[in-house]
């Protein structure tokens, strides 16, 4: 029995590795894809993978929001915009990308150091309800915590939206 009991963390690790591989594959796809449309689809894969990672950490609310806003909203808008461009549009690689692997390695090392030095939440600590509706709501709306920054971000987005509409309307009038 004890031998089987050791299987559970292994399954956890496997799930984590598979999802992480999907996320990274999606991210690489975004950069490497030759067509914009494929790049956006790869982005969707990556974002859905992140949502899956949220679920493995017990943050169902964040996962749902991630899917609703990013995969269901932002990516659809990207695709929508892509459809307004020419269908034979191919992305041209900038010249001199021989150094790209070096950049990737350097970035990976920096990211690894950053993750190692910050508080790394392992899968064993999931089941914590940090991402539940109640806790997220308290963080956003309790005055002591993030209420003011949250409202400011909302104001900023509103300003950006009004600006975008203004620019689009101006274009129309010309």
């Amino acid at each position: 029995m004890r031998a089987i009991r050791g299987v559970v963390p292994v399954i956890d690790l496997l799930v984590f590795l598979v999802i992480s591989a999907l996320v990274i594959a999606g991210a690489v796809g975004v950069v490497m894809a030759e067509r914009i449309f494929h790049a956006v689809l790869a982005l969707a894969l990556s974002l859905l993978g992140v949502a899956a990672l949220f679920i493995t950490l017990g943050a169902e609310f964040l996962a749902a929001i991630q899917v609703l806003v990013y995969a269901g909203g932002v990516v659809v808008l990207f695709l929508f915009a892509t459809m307004l461009t020419r269908s034979d549009l191919q992305l041209r690689r900038p010249k001199g990308d021989e150094l790209a692997p070096v950049g990737a390695v350097v970035f990976a090392i920096i990211a690894l150091f950053y993750v190692a030095s910050s508080g790394f939440v392992s899968l064993g600590e999931r089941g914590s309800v940090a991402g539940s509706v109640e806790n997220v709501g308290k963080l956003i709306f309790d005055l002591g915590t993030y209420a003011v920054p949250f409202e400011l971000v909302g104001l900023l987005l509103l300003a950006a939206m009004v600006g975008a509409i203004f620019l689009a309307k101006k274009e129309e009038a010309r």
């Binding site: 609703l68 995969a71 269901g72 929508f80």
Partner: peptide, 22 residues
């Protein structure tokens, strides 16, 4: 997160339609 989950994954089907269209 029941109903939120439902609306979230339901919104994904737009993605499939756009894939077919393109």
């Amino acid at each position: 997160v029941g109903v939120l989950y439902i609306t979230a994954v339901a919104s994904l089907s737009t993605l499939a339609v756009l894939m077919a269209a393109w």
